[in-house]
């Protein structure tokens, strides 16, 4: 194991901003942020549909606002394999609905209120994620 590209300060700072969003949403609207829940409820449920839509819209506006004020490009690189993208998207969509949460819902909101269920979910998806990358690197 070598440690590379480690950016602890921007990671921690960005994390506190995410935490701020989670706690404002909780205190003002009474809901816990879990993006997979918000996105799937937007698709599948009438209840809170406008709220969920506006949250997702904000999620897309956030990076645009960053770009506008910092005048910097946001560079990302994503695999361009169509099969992998579709497979991964399906797995993430199906998996998060079966387990009731993703990195934000279980990993932040759930762990934040000390839910054992969420702690176990987070350990599980991290271990499987690490194994997946490990296997992908061998193949």
């Amino acid at each position: 194991m070598n440690i590379i590209n480690f950016t602890p300060i921007s990671a921690f700072l960005g994390g506190t901003i995410i935490g701020l969003s989670v706690i404002i949403f909780f205190i003002l609207n009474g809901r816990m942020i879990g993006i997979s829940g918000i996105a799937s409820n937007f698709l599948n449920e009438k209840k809170n549909r406008i709220d969920n839509f506006l949250f997702l819209l904000g999620l897309i506006l956030g990076p645009l606002i960053c770009k506008f004020y910092t005048k910097q490009q946001i560079n990302i690189s994503i695999s361009s394999s169509l099969i992998l993208l579709i497979l991964a998207g399906l797995l993430v969509g199906i998996g998060t609905r079966i387990s009731g949460g993703c990195t934000s819902g279980h990993g932040i909101s759930g762990i934040g209120r000390f839910s054992l269920r969420s702690i176990i979910a987070t350990i599980t998806f991290m271990v499987v994620g690490i194994l997946t990358v490990f296997i992908k690197n061998i193949i």
């Binding site: 994503i78 695999s79 992998l84 993208l85 497979l87 991964a88 998207g89 399906l90 797995l91 993430v92 969509g93 199906i94 998996g95 998060t96 079966i98 387990s99 993703c102 990195t103 599980t124 998806f125 991290m126 271990v127 499987v128 994620g129 690490i130 194994l131 997946t132 990358v133 992908k136």
Partner: peptide, 9 residues
């Protein structure tokens, strides 16, 4: 399942 999809992309 989520972890596998997360690790793929």
């Amino acid at each position: 399942l989520f972890g596998a999809g997360w690790g793929l992309i």
